[in-house]
Design a protein around this nucleic acid. Sequence first.
DNA 1: TTCAGTGCAAACAGTTTGCACCGAG
DNA 2: CTCGGTGCAAACTGTTTGCACTGAA
Lengths: 150, 150
Amino acid sequence: MKKHHHACKHTITEEAARELLADKGINRTRTKLDILTTLSKAHGPLSVAEIHERIGSDSCDISTVFRTMTQFTEKELVRELNLGEDFFRYEVVSPEDKHHHHHHVRCRNCGSIKALETCDLTPIEKIVSKLGFSDLKHVLEFSGICAKCH
Amino acid sequence: MKKHHHACKHTITEEAARELLADKGINRTRTKLDILTTLSKAHGPLSVAEIHERIGSDSCDISTVFRTMTQFTEKELVRELNLGEDFFRYEVVSPEDKHHHHHHVRCRNCGSIKALETCDLTPIEKIVSKLGFSDLKHVLEFSGICAKCH
DNA sequence: TTCAGTGCAAACAGTTTGCACCGAG
DNA sequence: CTCGGTGCAAACTGTTTGCACTGAA
């Protein structure tokens, strides 16, 4: 039987969160569990400030959130995104997602963020390779005005 | 007869710089002329700190460089770039260049930057449009290891 | 005389770090 | 007892801003 709730489809239970942390050899503290489930419930990538706010800004210090995000990123539990803002956002790297590189569109009006399923830059990357660059990475993020705000 | 010098092909003379500023209704002060010619001589987009250093860090305050870059950007004399670093870079918008949208590759080892002449994201942009977003903009920057560093 | 341009210092935001403490293993 | 996790405060970086001064038009 399918579960119905308001959270996004990638929401994970505390149980699953415990497992993910254990797999990566990260201690399962209240704060880390909260951060991970909060991120998975979110409908888009969150900034450190947003995470801190959502888990209850008095439940832990914001520096702890920063430290946790660094740790999660290193352990590839989350992905750090530069969406052209002056801070980073983070999203969980779900297992299926792991090798599924993707990008985002952000509404310049309401700030809502949607993920894009595709990313075919091979033609451009070929050109870059011809310039002599190897081990290519890229940042590609879109912004626009979403349907609601239009 | 062609001129030969070490500067990049987009280098402009102080004379040309004066004209550019005048066209935009910007006062031609020593500092602004220096910033503009320095940017044009550069072999890639510069950060505020780099500009400040190159015009002689004691020749003006760094806040002046920030203010000038804001003004230049508003007047579309320069373009502000987010190359995934934690600061912006700026490059002159040469007249031919004006409507010529382009991107960059940055070497993660030596920091050298090359411009890419192409930018064909239409297939991806179509997908984004279908998600209901209009008035699209994007950030696309590559990084890799350049031939020299490899 | 007027006002844009500037220097200087303080204020900011996001992020990092040193240090002391504490609690789970 | 040990050590990772944490709070707290200070430090840092890139950037912005308020204020007073000054020099060119």
